[in-house]
Structures are given as structure tokens and as C-alpha cells.
Design a protein around this nucleic acid. Structure first.
Length: 653
RNA sequence: GCACCCGUAGCUCAACAGGACAGAGCAGCGGAUUUCUAAUCCGCCGGUUGCAGGUUCGAGUCCUGCCGGGUGCGCCA
């Protein structure tokens, strides 16, 4: 069945048409204040002007409202239609109608599992681009929001019946490449030549020198590294003797790689690295700072047999990264699989053509040796080819759009990335639309703000490092475990673990999803794991309480049980259950899952009020079955809603 | 300097293409347990929506100008 909002909208439009022979907006809204009613139409006030233009005289909006009301046919839906204030038309839903509706939804859920929500028409093929971790880096809290929000959006649109193609646009290409290969070379060579300790000491001291801003010590470390580098190079000048064979056997772990990679970055960015020369029999001297660039030849010619070492190192780094990411995804219950990975590197062969086509169309032009697109409304252009001939991430984004539209047949593409990239995407979208690669309005950026610590500064550890996602999730689970054990010590340990997992991870995800994504958000374990208030544990607890009724009461309600809504608590619960479809549409339209969170929280409070005031198992038939049916529906609504958010709902807590 | 985002109760957040008296939670205060999970429920307290104009029957929401915070601004991603 269509949502109630849609039904009412149609009825009001028809009434307006009949009364004034006009096709006008019904201006339907959910009443903010329940004293007025459940739904309202605000059309009458707006019609004053339109009618005045048509007839030449002004009509009082209350009179207009009266005329609409007289033509309005809501069947059995409303128990009261009243006009209030300047001309609001208030609708109060009929408890009898609602009861029948509840019974019908319960019935349809048995077969379709959709709680009466119709799939969207027509279904659209939608690419959702989210998560996007970088190669050789552990996922940190910055990736959390994209991953969680992107997954919730994907699940919601998927439920609506759209074909969702998840794309994990990982950062596996570009200028950081040379540093990664160099880092692996250090790692492997130090291991093979028994210099691990030396390297480790260097790295530690370099870190403390940086932290203490001690330039002298830093320069010493850079010099020592140059010496070490030279020693290792002299043992194996072409990499064939030690490096390549060891690399083939190596099972690379992400954590040590990342550490060395950061070290290499710190070293090569330092001025002192420019003056430390490394000698090589086949080359003139190169400075330490130039080393990463020597390894980047692979970027230009990845298929050249000469670049076998680099290719191998690159794929090891990639595998190590993805392995760790997949662990996180599975911990988070995020539906991203290796099959969804299509990183920047997969567009490398399309970049030249992208630039050539944009140039041929007159959209791109040469400027100071680079090729740029001058985007209307922007002071600075989008650079798609650097003066040294290499491409940038904007070029890759454009290639990806073309690929997604042409090969994946995307009707629309949603980018879940942080808000800082807003201008970048505005430029990229403008270019793609101008080139005719995507229809206007089909490229959507769902931006989100920065995650802040409780000090309102970007979320970092006490020592100022970025927080690793894994550590954060582990801590959430541990904290949840403590609470579960405190509340329910008698449960077996493995069950407590499962509950702690659901609660801890659920809390982290819910805390993020329940805030409007565009603003920055303050991360607090204490708040997200609180058992009351707008938190995942509160919703999960409400769900567990319902399940408990069925455990105690045995039988589920018989199919087709009539639903009676006599108490205000039952009525309030039923009205809310009916709104899920409207909320799903809202989330899909705005790409903002926090609306669904607000809805589920409200549902839980209404259920709790019902639970306190309306005994279920002790009540007489047919009320008992009626209330059981309502419980069943409330549980199903919570389950479906939490599923769309990607949050677990254990039966027991 | 230019551009984008944000500014709502002590704190964390809502307000669904402008709608009625701006709502929740936390914290604070006061209550409720012979009954299906008290990880709960009920009540009270708390506001010049950063400021000043404007558009509108109606503005937290749209426009203009300030103030405050964040972010981005040709060859990083």
C-alpha cells in the first residue's frame, strides 16, 4: 500500500481540483503538535494568492479551507477533519481504520516482509561510492563516517527496490606510490640483512625528534638512514639478489608497513633529505628525498617486465590493506566485499582519453602548461592534467563517472565523502554534466562533517595521533561487555560476548548515524553507550523487551488477529508504526539516515510507554491477541529499521 | 582576499523542499517497582534560534549585511 502521506496528498489534490478547478500542491505535513491532529494540509493559505489572480478578488483562507473540506473524501481514514488557525486543515486518524490497517500490515509482512511498504517505482540503478580507504594505511576514524553512512544509505535504497552497486574507490594510485614501495624495500632489506633493530631505533628516534621539533636530532637520523640505505643498496643493487626473492615469500602485514611508510614520508619531506646523496652504479647520485620518485616508474609503465618488483610490492601492499579493511567491515557488519573494490588504479588507462575528449569538446583548455577546466562560478579551475603530464584525482573521478554511467549503467551516483570535498565534487559534477556524461541532478554528494573529540577538536589520541578504527571498535565492545556483565551476570559468556558486540558496535554506528551528517559531530563513548536517551542500546533494549514477551507468552498472535486501539498508548504506537514508509522515503530523498534514527527512537519510547501501561500476556482475549499483534509489529518495525541502519538487534540483552 | 559549511536550552542534538506555542535526550530537582527485562516509566526546571535588516498571511528555515567557528582555494588525495 502507498504511504498514508501519499494517500492523503492525493485526496487533498482531488478536493482542491474539484473545489477550484486547480492543480495545486496539497502542502501536506505531519502535525508537529498532536493536539491539533495527526496530519495537516497547509494549502488554503497559499491558495489565497492563486485564487485572487484567477478571480480578481481575495478570499479568506478559512473559507478556502471550508471549501476544500467539503469536497474532501477520506473514506474511513479520518475520525475528525477540522479547520484551525488561519486555515490549517487538521486530520485525525480513525482508531478503527488504524486497527484494520495494523492487521493488514501484519498480514502482508508475513508474506513479503516489507511491513506493507511498496518498492519505489521505477527502480533505479544507483552507484554508492563510500568508505574509500587508502593503501598502506590503516582505516582511522575519518573513514568511519563514510563507511557507516554509505552503508546505511545503500541498505535503505536497496530496500526501496533500487539496484545498488557499491563502489569502494580505494586510494591505490598516485604519488604516494613510490614511498610505499620504498617502505617495503626498507622493511624487507632490513629483515634480510639483520638490520631490523637499527631501522626500528631510527624510526623511534625520528618520531621523538619530530614530536620534540628537535631539528638537529632529526638531521642526524636522516643522515644515519642515508648510511643504512647505502649499505643495504650495496648488498643488492638491482634488487634481484635479495629483495625480489624475499618479497615473493613475504606475507606483508599492514601495521608495520604503515609505520615505515609514515617514516619514509617524514624523512623525504624533510629538507635535510635533499642533501644526503645515495650512490648507485647505474645512476648519478640521487638524494634521499628523490628515492621515492625512482620507484614511481611503475606508475607510467605498470606492465613493463622491468617493473616486476614494483608491481609485486604494490600488490602486496594492496592485499595487506584490503585484508585489514575486510576485517573491519565484517566487524562493523558493513556490506562491502572485495568485489566492490574498484580503486583509482582501475581507471588509469582511461585518463588520457578523458582529457582528450574534454579538450576536443572545448570544455578543457591549456593553461600554464597544465590542462584545466574552468568551472563557472569558481575562481580556480579544475586541473585534470599537470604540466609534467601526470593526472590528478579529479581526472580519476571523471573517468569513474563515465565508467559508472556507461559500463555500470548508473542512473545516479552518490558520493559519501567528507564535506571538505564539496567544492571538488561541485567542479567534477559540473564538468561531467557539461560533457554530457551524466544527466543533471544524477550526481549527488552526501557530505559529512568532521568527527570531533570531547574537547571539540578533531578526534585524536591523547598523544595527538589519529585513532585507529580497530582500537576504537575494540574499546566500544569492551565497554559494552562490562555493562552486559553488570546487568546480566547469569548469561553464559559467549552470549554476553555476542550481545556486547551488537551493543558496542551498534552504539558507535548509531551515534554517528543519528546526527545530521553535514555538521561536525562530537564522539563520546559515555554518551553513545548510555542506556537511556537516543542511543542504540535503548532501541535494542526496547526490542529485547518485546522479544521477551514472546518468550514468556509462547505463541505469536494468530494470523489475521484483529487489532483494537482503545488506549492512547496503543493508538500512539500504531500511528507511529504506520509511518515507517514515509520515513524511508525521507531518508532516501535527503540521503540522511538520522531521520530513521529519530523515528526508531520515537517508536521505542512509544513502545516503552505502551509496555508500562498496557499489560499484554495478562489481558483477556481478544485484547491479548490484539496487543500481541501490536508487539509483533513493533518488533518487526524495529528490526527492519535497524537492518536498514546496519545495526544488530539481539533477542535478549 | 575569495568561496563553501556551520551557529538552536548549561551539554549533545531535532525541527521531513517556509507553517500553529521551536522539540528530545543528558545533566539538575521530584516521583513510580506484589504485574510481561527498572538497561524502564511519569512529572518539574531550562530559549531574544549569533546580531541587524528585508521578503512573506506566516521565517530557526529564503535574501542582504555584520559577528563568531570550521573548511577549501592550479599542478597532494
Amino acid at each position: 500500500m502507498p504511504t498514508l502521506l501519499t494517500l492523503l496528498d492525493q485526496a487533498f489534490r482531488a478536493a482542491i481540483k474539484q473545489a477550484f478547478d486547480l492543480d495545486a500542491e496539497a502542502q501536506l505535513a505531519i502535525s508537529q503538535n498532536e493536539d491539533f491532529g495527526d496530519y495537516q494540509s497547509n494549502a488554503a493559505m497559499g491558495l489565497v494568492k492563486i485564487l485572487a489572480q484567477k478571480t480578481g478578488k481575495k478570499t479568506n483562507p478559512r473559507t478556502i479551507a471550508e471549501q476544500i473540506k467539503s469536497k474532501l473524501d477520506l473514506g474511513a481514514i479520518a475520525s475528525d477533519i477540522s479547520i484551525a488557525g488561519p486555515g490549517f486543515i487538521n486530520i485525525r486518524l480513525s482508531p478503527t481504520w488504524l486497527g484494520k490497517e495494523m492487521a493488514a500490515i501484519a498480514q502482508s509482512d508475513r508474506t513479503a516482509g516489507r511491513l506493507g511498504i511498496e518498492p519505489a517505482q521505477p527502480p533505479q540503478t544507483t552507484v554508492v561510492d563510500y568508505s574509500g580507504p587508502n593503501i598502506a594505511k590503516e582505516m582511522h576514524v575519518g573513514h568511519l563516517r563514510s563507511t557507516i553512512i554509505g552503508d546505511a544509505i545503500s541498505r535503505t535504497l536497496e530496500f526501496q527496490g533500487h539496484k545498488i552497486i557499491r563502489q569502494n574507490h580505494i586510494g591505490d594510485w598516485g604519488t604516494q606510490f613510490g614511498k610505499i614501495v620504498l617502505a617495503i624495500w626498507y622493511l624487507v632489506m632490513a629483515e634480510q640483512l639483520h638490520k631490523k633493530e637499527t631501522l626500528a631505533t631510527l624510526m623511534d628516534q625520528m618520531k621523538s625528534a619530530s614530536d620534540a621539533k628537535d631539528e638537529t636530532l632529526k638531521n642526524q637520523m636522516i643522515h644515519s638512514l642515508a648510511v643504512l640505505h647505502q649499505q643495504m643498496l650495496d648488498e643488492d643493487t638491482n634488487g634481484r639478489v635479495i629483495f625480489e626473492p624475499s618479497l615473493e615469500r613475504l606475507h606483508l602485514e599492514l601495521a608495520p608497513l604503515e609505520k615505515v611508510y609514515q617514516f619514509v614520508t617524514a624523512v623525504t619531506d624533510a629538507a635535510a633529505a635533499e642533501t644526503e646523496l645515495i650512490r648507485h652504479p647505474d645512476h648519478r647520485g640521487h638524494s634521499l628525498a628523490e628515492m621515492p620518485r625512482l620507484f614511481t616508474t611503475f606508475i607510467q609503465n605498470p606492465d613493463d617486465e622491468k617493473n616486476k618488483q614494483e608491481r609485486l610490492a604494490w600488490s602486496k601492499a594492496r592485499d595487506a590493506t584490503l585484508e585489514t579493511c575486510n576485517e573491519i567491515y565484517s566487524k562493523l557488519g558493513v556490506r562491502l566485499t572485495p568485489a566492490d573494490v574498484r580503486g583509482e588504479s582501475s581507471y588509469k588507462d582511461m585518463l588520457a582519453q578523458v582529457v582528450a575528449d574534454l579538450e576536443a569538446d572545448g570544455i578543457a583548455e591549456k593553461s600554464e602548461g597544465a590542462i584545466v577546466v574552468n568551472v563557472t562560478g569558481f575562481e580556480f579551475p579544475l586541473i585534470i592534467k599537470k604540466s609534467d603530464g601526470s593526472y590528478l584525482y579529479g581526472t580519476t573521478d571523471l573517468a569513474a563517472i563515465r565508467y559508472r554511467v556507461r559500463e555500470l549503467h548508473a542512473d545516479r551516483i552518490i558520493y559519501v565523502t567528507d564535506a571538505r570535498q564539496q567544492q571538488h565534487f561541485a567542479q567534477v559534477f559540473w564538468t561531467a554534466e557539461k560533457a554530457g556524461w551524466a544527466k543533471k541532478g544524477t550526481l549527488k554528494h552526501a557530505p559529512f562533517g568532521t568527527m570531533l573529540g570531547e574537547d571539540n577538536k578533531p578526534f585524536k589520541t591523547r598523544s595527538g595521533d589519529t585513532v585507529k578504527l580497530k582500537d576504537l571498535l575494540d574499546e566500544a565492545e569492551q565497554r559494552a561487555m562490562k555493562v552486559v556483565t553488570e546487568k546480566n551476570p547469569e548469561l553464559p559468556e559467549d552470549q554476553r560476548c555476542r550481545i556486547a558486540h551488537a551493543v558496542g558496535i551498534g552504539a558507535v554506528k548509531y551515534a554517528d548515524l543519528s546526527k545530521d551528517s553535514v555538521s561536525d559531530y562530537v564522539f563520546s563513548f559515555d554518551k553513545m553507550l548510555a542506556l537511556d536517551g537516543n542511543t542504540a542500546p535503548y532501541l535494542q533494549y526496547a526490542h529485547a523487551r518485546i522479544k521477551s514477551i514472546f518468550r514468556k507468552g509462547g505463541e505469536p498472535p494468530p494470523p489475521g488477529a484483529a487489532v483494537y486501539l482503545e488506549s492512547p498508548f496503543e493508538l500512539a504506537l500504531a500511528k507511529h508504526i504506520l509511518r515507517l514508509g514515509e520515513v524511508v522515503e525521507l531518508v532516501a530523498r535527503e540521503l540522511k539516515p538520522h531521520h530513521l534514527c529519530a523515528y526508531l527512537y520515537e517508536l521505542s519510547t512509544r513502545f516503552s510507554a505502551f509496555y508500562e501501561n498496557c499489560p499484554v500476556l495478562q489481558s483477556e482475549q481478544p485484547l491479548r491477541d490484539s496487543r500481541l499483534a501490536l508487539c509483533k509489529l513493533a518488533a518487526r518495525t524495529l528490526e527492519l529499521g535497524l537492518d536498514l541502519l546496519g545495526i544488530e538487534h539481539p533477542d535478549q540483552m
